[in-house]
Design a binder for these strands. Structure first.
Lengths: 193, 193
DNA sequence: TTCATTTCTTGAACTAGGTCAATGGAATTG
DNA sequence: CAATTCCATTGACCTAGTTCAAGAAATGAA
């Protein structure tokens, strides 16, 4: 049977029959990973584009001091991959790692090709996915240049309202581009209001 | 006759015959704009994807103090547009403006559709274009979080070696996310070495 | 339940980068 | 060719955010 979350996601993008949906489902591989599993690391080729059924994932670079710089968090009903590395099958420069126990639907390059040949309508879905990523990077870059740490934190809380309960502060700090100590100060400052 | 710059760009991506290239060319509209022409502004729908034959363009947001925050510079042989606004035909939140007198090849949504229907091989070219943009935003975001202003300036000089001779410092400062004064200090500090 | 490990908070001293103001040079424009 | 506006530099002072260190609180393992 088709995974409900993916079904909902697809139907949200395009019109498609039940029997077609079954065929689509068979091209995905369902997999479970415990937390702290590294799904992709620097230098490896990204071998799948994954739809998140359950869990939470961070995508990050490592800076020259060996610190993680988190680019995005991904949770239920989002896609996760290094889009560039996956499409071009070239080595990635980033890390993708689970933060919680996570359940994924994996799509390999060859299965994606089959999928798009059989259902060209899905081209649109993937184009949208890439565009949304691009859009989100633009907003994030703008925020990092134009906003103060406090404003970025507020922006983060709006974008990911459920995340603060799920992940630790130092991850949020890394995402915001500030030290964990300073985030703590922002939070106490905010609480006093 | 086919515009040589575009011909070269396309042949770099795919194999295509001379007669086909001619047909492609006719779908683009060549236009000249003087410097300081705003091609797209906040709230407008992006009506074309343009290939730059000559000139230089900035893409920016306006922050709450009314300051420009430059996302990218685009020059010869690059595409410029608000990809998201163009594809979805939704209002843009950014500005696109010429910095120099600029010559563009404009592609409208309907002409792009014709183009892709006639030459599906070009899908790949546009997919690559979007991916490169995404890639460049990722690098830029990483740089803005993980690098000092001085390092970002060095990174900028490597990415755009010819630009400093063409554009003013305050534009570079806006791109780097620092004040024009501080960029000036960085430059004098660098010159002293 | 206890011990250990990780996570969060707070203080004190520091620094990267900002703001404001003044100056002199370039470059447009009437 | 003035006149004006825009541009780059420099100084003085300021602040957002950092680093290091040390406790406190929470979480997890056994």
């Amino acid at each position: 049977m088709m995974t409900p979350a993916l079904e909902k996601y697809i139907r949200n993008c395009i019109n498609i029959s039940d029997t077609d949906l079954e065929k689509i489902d068979s091209l995905f591989e369902k997999k479970n990973y415990p937390k702290k599993t590294i799904l992709l690391r620097d230098g490896e080729i990204c071998k799948e584009e994954s739809f998140i059924i359950k869990g939470c994932i961070k995508t990050y670079f490592i800076d020259k001091e060996g610190q993680e710089v988190i680019l995005t968090f991904s949770t239920e009903n989002w896609w996760v991959s290094d889009i560039y590395s996956f499409q071009e099958q070239t080595p990635s420069k980033m890390f993708i790692e689970t933060i919680e126990d996570t359940e994924l639907l994996l799509l390999t390059p060859s299965n994606k090709e089959k999928l798009l040949q059989t259902f060209p309508a899905l081209e649109k879905m993937f184009r949208l996915m890439v565009q949304r990523h691009l859009h989100s990077y633009q907003e994030r870059l703008f925020g990092n240049i134009a906003l103060s740490a406090e404003e970025r934190y507020e922006q983060f809380l709006q974008k990911y309202p459920a995340l603060p309960q799920r992940i630790s502060q130092h991850l949020i700090a890394s995402y915001l581009g500030i030290s964990a100590e300073f985030l703590s100060r922002l939070r106490t400052r905010k609480a006093k209001k």
